[in-house]
Design a protein around this nucleic acid. Structure first.
Lengths: 123, 123
DNA sequence: TTAGAAGCTTACAATTTTGTTAGAAATGGG
DNA sequence: CCCATTTCTAACAAAATTGTAAGCTTCTAA
């Protein structure tokens, strides 16, 4: 998330995989610890930095900021600055990202079903 | 992937998020560097360890082994051992995981579309 | 004048993930 | 006996991600 050593095998592999197919690309964009949660919160309405922070327990300023910036770069969220003091900044999903939300429903269903299977087999 | 310090904030946050919803749970299971690729290869037919290794450039024995073991634990793949020497082991998707493949199509489409948008905006 | 709000950033430390290299076990072939 | 094969594992090193603590800026209210 911070700096990366672009010549490392690690980074080369990451980039290679990112170009494999759309699925891998998508998952690469979504990979940060709190990204899905942030997107999920924003799927209901736009929110300010502090509002996001307050509705995501345990996230730190740094992580929130880092993730938002990356997602802005990746075209997942939009950042809207109001010329006020103290500053007011709102975040919202881009149009493209809204299509993603629909897919989550399926993944959500799958995830819950799979978890149920897993838990029943542990007995 | 290796050992984890179960009491760390890092791990606590991970676990918290894993229980948030089915989507987060699913993504947690899929999060390793090569996991999606492995599942993708297995979606066509079962494969032996070495076959997987040969069709995934750059993956190391260790990573392949680690990911397969985790995915077996997580009910994503099945491991079938043949009583032969030298050993023969085949991996295949579980039934549950096959349903996941269908979802990928949508994510793949979204990913490709989103990437196109991103690339066109960089100009 | 001191404090507080909002949205960040910086420096650093802890933790986790990934990669590298070597090698183990069991057996058949030469 | 020596080597190759297959499926891993162990020890270690490198790199990436995440977390912690503090501080910055600009104004307004107390």
């Amino acid at each position: 998330m911070g700096k990366r050593k672009i010549s490392s095998t690690n980074t080369k592999n990451r980039d290679y995989l990112k170009n494999e197919c759309g699925t891998m690309y998508a998952l690469t964009l979504l990979a940060g610890r709190w990204k899905m949660t942030i997107l999920h919160k924003l799927s209901k309405n736009e929110l300010r930095f502090t509002e996001l922070k307050n509705c995501i327990p345990n996230i730190s300023d740094r992580m929130l900021s880092l993730h938002l910036k990356e997602m802005e770069n990746d075209g997942l969220v939009e950042r809207i600055v109001f010329a006020e003091v103290p500053p007011k900044v709102e975040y919202k999903l881009t149009e493209s990202t809204q299509d993603l939300i629909a897919i989550w429903d399926k993944l959500d269903t799958w995830g819950n079903k799979h978890r149920a299977i897993q838990e029943s087999e542990i007995q």
